[in-house]
Design a protein around this nucleic acid. Structure first.
Lengths: 337, 337
DNA sequence: TCGATTGATGTAATCGATTACATAAATGGT
DNA sequence: ACCATTTATGTAATCGATTACATCAATCGA
């Protein structure tokens, strides 16, 4: 592997000149620059990253911490991050969250302390932490994506409150009055604005939010199945809701399935809306009415913001994306009676 | 950020001793070791990665190149890779394939030349390449995952041929005789063994493989929808197959939907099997009979193999995983007539 | 008790690129 | 024509950890 000295020798200049010709081309004479660039090309020279990082005190790497990669909503955000980071000359290190594995979190903190990355994109609500040390209080520049606001950190968010508001209004407009709300878990910070939006819409319609049924979920299929069971119990008691608001598509899809398996029809017997807009919402039966989050764009925006922050061109700010409702087959008029 | 010199001063020893106490504890006296470790703890010292990498000529990083992250089959492999790599003290850099973006491929080659990672996991059939330079002929250690064999590279594979063989046998056993096969595209290397397995089963039953219908797909939803259209055309001509073999779950699910929308029932009118075993196969309507690939395990095995190769403990070998058929709701007896 | 061997630690070179500072050449003003 | 300034390039220090080699003390055998 060619080193800067080899290039210098070949071009008949010093290593300093080679370095300058590459990183600050205007500072060398055009003829010299050509000599250097030719030598670089002939030798296939690429500066060694470790040496450069050591000297520069940065790595041009970003860490992305994601709760669950197999959730395609997160996967799409990561995809957007990768796109934008790579466009701007940064690499992306990825790590799946593991709240239970202290080892893995410690490994992350070590990588941070070792200077392996310059900043962090946190798709997770949880902050990697071991004892009292965490990424944030190591002074690591941070952007939160779809997770929460945090002083000193950037944030990329959806209009969460608006989202459930329009979602619920859509159902109210179809005549629904009795709802089941499947949350993302009280631990998840998005839960608050989303539930607020739901409650606001309910109140607008002159109904009591606290008389609606709320079920706790964790964004996974199992939560959806559990919610379906709850729904069926309620139905047996004669007090089933006619509409279900799930704040995650996977939960919505699993719930839909659980209900269909009991012989009920969607949307004739019960309507359901999801949240995220993953691809499968277009391929389940019926297609799922859902809030579409522009996941790739949000990822790209987050990476862009973080890189701006690293380059000192932007203060940790907040980027808010609008929520859109995609109406599909899973919602229909409330059944009579 | 504390440096090795700070630790040395605090412990009253030389930097060499600090380094030894950390990387080769047996080479220092127990009392000295304690002095050093105490100082390390008190100062919160972590060795700087760039300096260490520069000296050692390696980075303890792996690159994973993935075709499409939002495909949850790939996402699960990545998850397994991350798990195992992190367990063994390696980090994972991720990059989504972009056959059209020369820029991005060049970026990858630069990162490789810069020594940013020690080895590559390639989930993609395509090799990142710019002109005649590619990752492989830079001498980068390589493990292919579910993509193809390659001289000098490790490989983690499913018994592809077996998979379609048992899949097709299952359908034959249900009485099906007319098939549609949705491929993963002639460009994809898995296509060959998978199609072979299909043909072998067909031949076993005394049928002509080349009289079955073959449709080209690309593992995405759109391919499945297109295949459904083709199926409906064939049906209009009175020569519809009774069973569909799709070598990807997303294609199978989209195809299923296209067929259902035309008013046909699955599996009563037509049976369909998928390939991969993604979560959604359990949540579509009906649930999808499919080949289950142990994606996480395959990812972990691949990372393990690559790290063994890097540490000189193993030659690039081949790890083959068995295929299992998960029978679900999308397959049933062939319709009479 | 003396030289040889072993063990523990320190000194300093090294990895490869960047950049402050030094130097030399070229340009400009008067 | 001379000094001041600018421009281009070279020399060498630097980033922080690792490790070959040097050094010194302790142990051992005869």
């Amino acid at each position: 592997m060619a080193k800067i000295g080899d290039v210098a020798r070949r071009a008949g200049v010093s290593t300093a000149t080679v370095s300058r010709a590459l990183s600050n081309p205007d500072s060398v004479r055009p003829e010299t620059r050509k000599l250097v660039l030719d030598a670089v090309r002939e030798l296939g020279y690429t500066p060694n990253a470790a040496a450069r990082n050591l000297r520069a005190g940065r790595s041009r790497m970003l860490l992305t911490v994601v709760p669950l990669l197999s959730n395609s909503f997160f996967a799409r955000i990561v995809s957007g991050i990768d796109q934008e980071a790579s466009r701007r000359g940064y690499g992306t290190i990825i790590s799946e969250e593991s709240p239970d594995s202290v080892e893995k979190q410690a490994h992350l903190l070590d990588l941070a302390a070792a200077g392996l990355f310059d900043g962090v994109l946190l798709l997770s609500a949880l902050m990697p932490r071991v004892g009292r040390r965490s990424l944030a209080d190591m002074g690591m520049p941070l952007v939160r994506v779809c997770s929460r606001r945090e002083p000193g950190a950037g944030a990329v968010l959806l209009e969460e409150r608006e989202a459930t508001l329009i979602q619920t209004r859509h159902l109210l407009g179809l005549g629904h009055r009795r709802f089941m709300y499947i949350s993302g878990g009280a631990g998840n910070i998005n839960d608050i604005p989303r539930y607020e939006g739901f409650c606001e819409a309910i109140a607008e319609a002159g109904l009591q939010p606290d008389q609606q049924i709320r079920v706790e979920g964790f964004f996974d299929f199992a939560s959806g199945t559990a919610a379906a069971h709850r729904f069926l119990e309620l139905r047996a008691e004669g007090r089933a809701p006619t509409a279900i608001v799930a704040v995650g598509d996977q939960m919505a899809i699993a719930c839909m399935k659980g209900i269909q398996e009991a012989g009920l029809r969607i949307p004739e017997d019960v309507s359901i809306v999801g949240f995220d807009g993953i691809d499968f919402t277009n391929y389940c039966q019926p297609t799922l009415t859902t809030i579409v989050q522009p996941a790739e764009d949000m990822g790209a925006a987050a990476a862009g913001l973080l890189i701006d922050m690293l380059q000192g061109e932007r203060d940790p700010g907040e980027i808010v994306f609008p929520a859109t409702l995609r109406v599909a087959g899973s919602t229909g008029p409330a059944p009579a009676g």
